[in-house]
Amino acid sequence: MRSEPYIQNKTLTDLRTDLQKVQEGVALALIQNGYTDFAQFAIRLCLEESIVNAFRHGNRSEPGKVVQFHCKIDGESAEFKIQDEGVGFDPAGVPDPTAEENLEIPSGRGLMLMRAYMSEVEHVAPGNMIRMKYKNGPDPAQ
């Protein structure tokens, strides 16, 4: 079942409550646009990782700082843009969490998961905005 594009532009002020609302709206739009269970799982995970990163690492959990959220979901793809108020970062500087010497370090896997599950991930300079796109289609071979 296909429907009109689901478009949202929101200013997120509270990580817990706003993230839940975002996830609920996106989940419904994905179902209405025929995304598979795998796609729904992947997108939920990537939204969780990116929005938590924006609040915790970008905004450093500072009260009053917000996160801008944009999404457009239709039958072809689901696109997301998340921007924090931080100074940005260089994604190339994030250590590879799968390297032998980093495996036992508890943090630093969110970005890797986003790159693994999404069709496209782009950091916009100075690094405080991330764009992600999931192209709807058959599940990748697992």
């Binding site: 939920r44 370090i105 508890p106 969110g110």
Partner: peptide, 13 residues
């Protein structure tokens, strides 16, 4: 049915 990278961090700890 769902788990985040933060949960992985706890498991590693």
């Amino acid at each position: 049915d769902h788990l985040s990278s933060a949960a992985l961090g706890v498991l590693i700890t």
